[in-house]
Design a protein around this nucleic acid. Structure first.
Lengths: 174, 174
DNA sequence: CCTCGACATGTCAATACTGACATGTTGATA
DNA sequence: TATCAACATGTCAGTATTGACATGTCGAGG
């Protein structure tokens, strides 16, 4: 059950409504770390409010409710983050595809690898451009923080370099 | 539903029993790409056999059954791997922790980051040592392939470098 | 003033997955 | 020959998650 921790983390940085939280999950958080749609977020917020981990601090237009972390929630978040890593849950379809590449004939594998190299390279360039152009875009309300942005950038670059390495390797064998 | 594709990919490289497949998921495949225990693998193999994607090619001691991919299964695997990436399912608890780091006070975040740097560095060193010492260990039956091994190594190094960067950044701010 | 898109929250059935429990086999070692 | 670890497969109840459906609000532009 990592979803409640994800919500605690987001609300600890800044109070938000369920709708706003849903938007954050559609960005990089959902792309790299943990997916969730509004159909799991809303019920989870209600559960967490019942448990006293979060509370509604204000109600806005269109029935929106803004949640904030309680002291209890903050303590729970800290416990979770400082506790030993153990072996967390992992499920990543893109990475799975890469692991399965060796089941393809080299010609097919090369097609896939070239596509990976191209798309990751383009995304990395885009991220670097954004960071240079609007350094503050990453610290604001939308911000999962600069740490996370840097993490994403490095991930893309690592995958791109790996793909390039793999392509060269396959071509040399052929 | 990525589990069937993962199973197809493994069986395409080499026929195996459910028990052997379970072992593979306990290694790097489960660590980076897709987790699964025997309680989901066995039923899934039966479903896939019913659909004609795999078939039992031999029965061994202790009731073990060896599965192999059928032509239909191989076609399905190829379609999946060559189809546009779309946005696959992502769920990674460790990465989620990194995204939530900015919710901690800097002192706490530093503790976590130092632990990440240390463990990823140790694991990367270990992987590099294995690769140097037994280059063939990665191609054999256990092998998710050298491509995947290289991917894992680069992931660890990227995370370690990111952690080092983040530590330096936090320390400079303090 | 009408319409449409974004805002905002929800239920519910179907599916996927985990953890606990269950059962029996084979080979090695004491 | 008794025991134990690894081999080998399975069920099932409970939980988590997805996708389809439902409902209503507010602001901007035609």
């Amino acid at each position: 059950m990592s979803l409640p921790h994800a919500l605690l983390g987001l609300l600890a940085v800044q109070p938000r409504s369920g709708y706003e939280l849903t938007k954050v999950f559609e960005q990089d958080l959902g792309r790299y770390a943990w997916q969730a749609g509004h159909t799991s977020i809303y019920p989870e917020l209600n559960r967490m409010a019942e448990k006293g981990l979060v509370e509604v601090t204000s109600e806005g237009a269109r029935g929106s409710r803004t949640y904030a972390v309680t002291d209890e929630g903050r303590a729970e978040l800290r416990t979770w983050l400082l506790s030993p890593p153990s072996q967390g849950k992992v499920r990543n379809e893109q990475v799975l595809r890469m692991f399965m590449l060796s089941a393809l004939e080299p010609a097919d594998a090369l097609v896939v690898l070239r596509r990976i190299e191209e798309t990751t390279d383009r995304t990395a360039a885009e991220l670097r451009r954004v960071r240079e152009a609007e350094p503050d875009a990453l610290t604001g309300p939308e911000g999962f923080g600069q740490l996370a942005a840097e993490y994403g950038l490095r991930q893309y670059e690592a995958v791109r370099d790996w793909a390039a390495w793999a392509i060269e390797r396959l071509e040399r064998e052929a």
